[in-house]
Design a protein around this nucleic acid. Structure first.
Lengths: 223, 223
DNA sequence: ACCTGAACACCGTTCAAGT
DNA sequence: ACCTGAACACCGTTCAAGT
């Protein structure tokens, strides 16, 4: 037997490869990782305390890999915030599992805390109180997480519906329009096309929603 | 053997009881439900197509159980929206698993579609376009879902940290402050107390975030 | 120090068989 | 029509045993 040594980095790399092929964090299993690396499942537990520790490492790696744009205090604070979130958003779009990963982990690393710190600093510099700043950043974060959870959920449901494994789910979206039509849910029907185009336009959607929120926030600063 | 007949309603009731004791939708298992009702696991599959179908039934039951306040077109549209979301929010607070349930299911029932329709109608009546209305309602929904996913995640992590099963997680929140202090993340430290009080004040937090968003939306309507 | 096989305690789902 | 036991194909995690 050739003595092949596996590193923690190789394990996270394999985990990322598996996630890239789709599926949720729940579906990422230690057994799949072990099979990909041709190691026993127990080997994983020598390198990581448990699955949670792997997720922490992965979430940190994702944030560390982001190239954040430079911002200066000369720029309007709204512009600074938008630039940073646009970058985060782009990353989440490339790696759709990233949002779920962030929700499932604690930002207890230097890299993740520094990002939160930077966002808070922009708002403090703009004249917001610590309370306002904290609320605003968390609200934006929740908005983005919710959007991604929704998109991830829809993608997963679509995959399960397309594979023969779950024909149950396949009929549900079709049922929506029928029910809406039968009950004369006119407002819903009027906006139905916008519902359906959701996935393609999620990037603009996030930025538009962010614009609305920042406009309301700017108003609050003046009063 | 006494011939005891189980109904679908009894199964959802048992499922709600299990969820009330805490835990995620993932942790709700058909085996736990079967044990609670003293039936075989396979019996579940006679009453429901699969676990997804159970979740659909549960999400519908939750929305059906909400007593929505009456709103009239005489009220300002922001007031109408706030009243409805306050009610939804209160329900999600009582049943913390409700938000996760909504994210995991398709609103393909009359009761859930009628709620979406009502919210959209308020915005259409206020003069927003279908595009704007759809974006606004989805944004608010994502914001609320993200907030609840965050709270649910934090509660779950706290439970796992408190039980001896996962001491790994217990040390992470403590680590946060140490790292922030070591790296002079001043903005983070300044708002740290607000982070920690999060759970108690999540209700006000949601309403405050909603206020900001609605203020931005109102502004958009005038331009 | 690093890796393993085998086991434990869980999952969702199916299916032939019972009444 | 309704329910069952037993099986299948999965999980995360542990642990004594190997090198």
């Amino acid at each position: 037997m050739v003595k092949q040594t596996i590193s923690a980095a190789q394990i996270t790399a394999a985990a990322f490869e598996i996630m890239q092929t789709g599926g949720t964090v729940e579906q990422l299993s230690i057994r799949k990782i072990a099979a990909k690396l041709h190691i026993g499942v127990a080997t994983f537990y020598w390198h990581f305390e448990n699955k949670q520790a792997l997720l922490q490492a992965m979430s940190d790696e994702i944030i560390a890999g982001i190239q954040f744009p430079p911002t200066t205090t000369a720029m309007p604070w709204t512009k600074q915030i938008k630039l940073i979130f646009k970058t985060i958003y782009a990353t989440y779009l490339e790696q759709p599992y990233a949002a779920e990963l962030m929700l499932r982990t604690v930002p207890a690393t230097k890299i993740r805390l520094s990002l939160i710190n930077r966002l808070l600093q922009i708002l403090l510099d703009a004249g917001f109180t610590p309370e306002q700043s904290n609320l605003a950043i968390e609200s934006i974060d929740h908005f983005m997480s919710g959007l991604f959870a929704d998109i991830a959920g829809k993608i997963e449901m679509k995959q399960r519906a397309l594979s023969q494994t779950d024909p149950y789910l396949a009929q549900l979206p079709l049922k929506m329009k029928t029910i809406a039509a039968d009950n004369h849910f006119d407002a819903f029907l009027k906006t139905f096309e916008h519902h359906r185009q959701q996935q393609q336009h999620s990037a603009e959607k996030f930025m538009l929603g962010l614009d609305i929120f920042l406009a309301g926030l700017e108003q609050q600063r003046h009063s």
